[in-house]
Write a protein that binds this DNA or RNA. Structure first.
Lengths: 239, 239
DNA sequence: GCAGAAAATGTAACGCGTTCTACCTCTCGA
DNA sequence: TCGAGAGGTAGAACGCGTTACATTTTCTGC
């Protein structure tokens, strides 16, 4: 578990939270990059000993989740495995659910990091995005219980996890935009990528709930990506 | 709470569960209607007295959710309010979560029923779908706590609720397809509508988690619907 | 170094989902 | 009509998330 670094991720000069009417109907809207909100990386700004505890707790949660899914992540077990008192776990994470959400964020950051610099196979945005997705899906498949726990936690999260979930969306968005090879993130691109991220989340949920196989999810994603990038390509031509 | 009837919903001559490679890349794929799986309406096939209990339990859950959200739906309170023993609640519903998922399904069925026959305002599929969405969003807004509870339950559901969640997807799909005024549900249409449903679910989740206002959700939906139906329209021209 | 504050520990306790048990009450077929 | 079995009831009990608290350890500023 790295992701402890300074958030390399993707390096759009400046993405920033879009606000108000970020949705754009007109194909010929001005091309204007948007900047990204500086959602803090969780667990930074801690002193070394504390940071170590923090990461040990997350690691314990991750292991327990891997072994037995959501239910196996019991706070007493997390405390014991990370060599920390129960109260300490709660000092760092206000709830089991938040702990799992943070764990998910860190993992996604790792993934984004991994795919961030690499040149992906594929000539088109569509192909490259699908390459990322296929890679991700493989990871999901290989740790079904882990992702069952993490995805369900993310979906169950209430308003108190809003910041972490925003960060999650951010990471996903950047991951896809990067895979697509987009340098300037316009509002159109943002919309497109968000739709893909939405379909991806929905796919994860139905995979977790046992309603779709990963192949189903991939197939549906392929449709969605085709749709969205087809449109995007046409928009760019018109311009 | 009606939805006790014989599933009027929408009346596509025959929708059926798609299977295998339901995603279609080629715009000129054969136009072939798909049929729908006969997911049972929950709670049918019960004797009158039992059906009454069943519905009282759901109604109690719904009320409690309205009053205080997910946490306020306590199984002991549900039992008390519905005038039934705790064990009986568990005889009908294997868990709190399933109870809430079933409640959500029934509500969505009501909505689908309401919009099913009505002629919706708007000349295009896009406008009619947005009309449905705006109506739904209004209902969400007016019962925030209720939908907080129900949506979070649906998202948290594990494999044991797969059937109910499938039913939910089915209802949503039919709702949108109907709003769009589509009579023949081809695979292309199914894909399109699914993407919309996915974006809708994602929107619900971020609304529930306090990360987006309903206006944000509506705006994003508008983008997504434009995208999807734009493509659909072009596909039909090429044919 | 050292006093005081902050953080960590160990453990008990509480609330609620879920399960279990013992008993009661319908319903329905012989 | 009756008796057996499914279904219902009341309430105790268990597990785990979460909180509270008294005590000890670690940090920080002087």
């Amino acid at each position: 578990m790295s992701a402890t670094g300074a958030l390399p991720l993707l390096n759009y000069p400046g993405l920033e939270a879009m606000e108000g009417d970020w949705m754009t109907e007109e194909p010929n809207a001005e091309v204007r990059p948007v900047k990204r909100s500086a959602t803090a990386v969780p667990g930074a700004d801690l002193k070394p000993a504390q940071r170590a505890r923090y990461l040990r707790i997350i690691e314990a949660a991750r292991q327990l989740a891997s072994e037995g899914g959501y239910d196996a992540v019991q706070m007493r077990a997390v405390a014991e495995r990370s060599g920390v008192a129960l109260g300490t776990v709660y000092r760092y994470f206000p709830s089991k659910n938040q702990l799992l959400v943070v764990t998910l964020v860190l993992i996604f950051e790792e993934v984004a990091e991994r795919f961030g610099g690499a040149d992906l196979p594929g000539d088109t945005a569509h192909e490259r995005i699908m390459a990322v997705l296929r890679g991700s899906v493989q990871q999901l498949e290989s740790e079904r219980k882990l992702y069952d726990a993490l995805v369900r936690a993310a979906m169950f999260a209430d308003a108190s996890s809003a910041a972490e979930l925003d960060r999650l969306g951010e990471v996903l968005t950047e991951l896809f935009a990067n895979a697509a090879g987009i340098e300037t993130v316009t509002e159109e691109v943002l919309n497109a990528v968000r739709i893909i991220a939405d379909v991806w989340m929905a796919g994860l949920v139905s995979w977790v709930a046992g309603r779709q196989s990963v192949d189903d999810v991939i197939a549906h994603m392929d449709t969605a990506v085709a749709l969205v990038f087809d449109r995007l390509a046409r928009l760019q031509q018109t311009r």
